[in-house]
Design a binder for these strands. Structure first.
Lengths: 347, 347
DNA sequence: CGGTGATGATAATTCGGATTATCAACATCG
DNA sequence: CGATGTTGATAATCCGAATTATCATCACCG
């Protein structure tokens, strides 16, 4: 009751009548330069281990330079709260599944200190180095931190496209998806589109704007950009209601829902008076019983691929690593929905 | 680009012109037996650290016997899948919040091998020892593993009441809650109750049965127990429909929903023909627009208290630890709902 | 019988940081 | 002036496992 004397290799060695080094070699089943251990001895060691409750100390293994089979999961804000789970849930699920497949444990950096509303990856007591590598999730990634990770050669993968050079990532191709939505709007007769967005400067947000601009140019569509960073949502709604654009595209489903309410107050019904599409995942959301037009994003796959890439970065040596494709874009798909409708001739 | 030579205390020492030992002592701001370090030297070391990107290696710290500020989270099945999240979500949220408060990271043992459908805590490569202590979640806890943890003196806390001696836990008082439900039924005129359960042998399941028995005896109520382990749900429904009991209590909300469907086929409406109550959390669930009668369980608080207790087990020395209350029961509350109704006189 | 390999296994070292045991240098006291 | 502190800081160890350097032993060969 008083002493839980932990079992070490030394203890195993004593029992089996061999040296600690022998125990280590049997355990890892390795053949070093000129070391040979006959089956008889190996067996003796194995039996000694079975007699006890020996488990290798992961800290010691790590210190000695071995893999730990621990992958870090860093989120720039709390990931497990009810609200965050909407976004992080599928990602975490994908990560958990893939980690299970790889035989890795997951370390969540919940202790990271919060500065300016976002967690800092590097701090005086970061347990980052305990992991073999790390997955980064969140919109608020800090460029300086990413760059430092690259410089230090620490294995990591960002979920979401990033601009910083050398940063490995797996992202979603919003440019193409956005183009597809515009194409659909055009096919339904629309020529004037308003994009209501948050005015964020993340790569994903930039890609949507870029996709929109590209599609507008190709398909001769006029676009109006309204940012809720400049004016609040009711103002945005007023501008739309008084304008002549026939389609409203929003950055995500939450803005779509809020905007629809505002527009209704201006007497604009969707999709009768105005079509609506969302440049984000719309699964499980609907507007007045109508399915929303938007994206279906393979978040679980996204996360799983990120983890798989991370694993590759960890296990491959430098040469093999150089050949890896560090940046992957994944295709999402369009959810037709019913909020983007044929343009009425009546105009 | 080729060499990320990690910064160690030795390197800091070289820069500051002191010994590694001095660096360590400055970092931990400790005063050993007869060691004194003047402010001037401390400052020199601190500046050297600021010049570099030094961060202590957690593996080395751990090996040297210090706290790691890492708490383990062990679940007996995958916790982050969409279905599991129903149950684990609030618990994990509570854990995350409390961990953040305590400044601890969380290690999820996703690599634990699955045997007989449930994960094993102990295996040849368990990273358990990397953590300062561990939280156990899930219905399927393995008695042998719990006992071994107790024997080894490893700090841990189970979420949910356990029978094994010496196991610290934080659980929900199902006995009292169940009694309250019965009391309510009696107040509404009911005297004959059927309890439909899964026939599990977990402590929580046993507590519900015990609470029911206790209440039945006190309040002179007749109870019938039906287990879906013995017969399937439609049979259970048939027995209930043909019987004379006026209240059905189910073990959880899922069984309640399924049973309600079956009962409807027998022409029994709830609560007109039969009252229904659930011995589990009913938040967010309803039956044909009617709120369910059942429990509201403070899952987040439960998890947070478990983590707080774990932290106490870790930081206190043996003596102080002996005085700790290792077993805590938390009170949930009753959700009145509308599926448990006044008994019609017409009988 | 001395030399040369192959065998089997161990002692010694490393990893990075914490802690203990020791020591040098200088001050103070009687 | 020598004994005794006091200050300041270092060398040496330890933690547990991985790996390298070395060393016995015995067999076989010429």
């Amino acid at each position: 009751m008083e002493k839980p004397p932990k079992v070490t290799q030394r203890e195993i060695a004593r029992i089996a009548g061999v040296s600690q080094a022998t125990v280590s070699m049997v355990l890892n089943d390795r053949e070093y330069s000129n070391v040979r251990i006959p089956e008889a001895t190996r067996e003796r060691v194995r039996r000694a281990i079975e007699q006890t409750t020996y488990v290798p100390d992961p800290a010691a293994r790590r210190l000695a330079g071995l893999d730990n089979k621990i992958l870090g999961v860093f989120t720039y804000e709390a990931a497990l709260s009810r609200e965050s789970l909407d976004f992080y849930g599928p990602l975490l699920h994908g990560i958990e599944q893939e980690a299970e497949r790889l035989g890795c444990d997951l370390l969540f950096f919940t202790s990271s200190p919060v500065e300016d509303g976002t967690r800092k990856l590097f701090h005086k007591q970061t347990r980052l180095r305990l992991t073999d590598g790390c997955i980064l999730l969140g919109q608020q990634m800090d460029s300086a931190e990413l760059t430092r990770l690259v410089e230090e050669g620490f294995p990591f993968v960002a979920v979401g496209r990033r601009d910083e050079p050398g940063v490995p990532y797996v992202g979603i191709d919003y440019v193409t998806l956005t183009g597809d939505i515009v194409e659909q709007a055009v096919a339904l007769g629309h020529r004037r589109i308003t994009y209501a967005h948050y005015g964020r400067s993340t790569p994903a947000a930039a890609d949507r704007v870029a996709g929109l601009a590209l599609a507008a140019e190709t398909m001769l569509v006029e676009t109006t950009l309204l940012s809720t960073a400049d004016s609040d949502l009711s103002e945005v709604a007023a501008v739309i209601a008084n304008g002549t654009d026939t389609v409203v595209i929003t950055e995500d489903v939450f803005m779509a829902e809020a905007l629809a309410v505002e527009l209704a107050e201006h007497g604009k019904a969707i999709p009768e008076d105005l079509s609506l599409a969302v440049l984000g995942d719309v699964e499980g959301h609907s507007l007045g019983g109508r399915g929303m037009t938007g994206f279906q994003l393979p978040r679980e796959q996204l996360a799983a691929e990120a983890l798989a890439l991370l694993q590759q970065l960890i296990v491959r040596n430098d040469k093999a690593r150089a050949k890896l494709e560090l940046r992957t874009m994944i295709e999402g798909s369009i959810v037709a929905g019913a909020t983007l409708a044929q343009l009425k001739e009546s105009r």
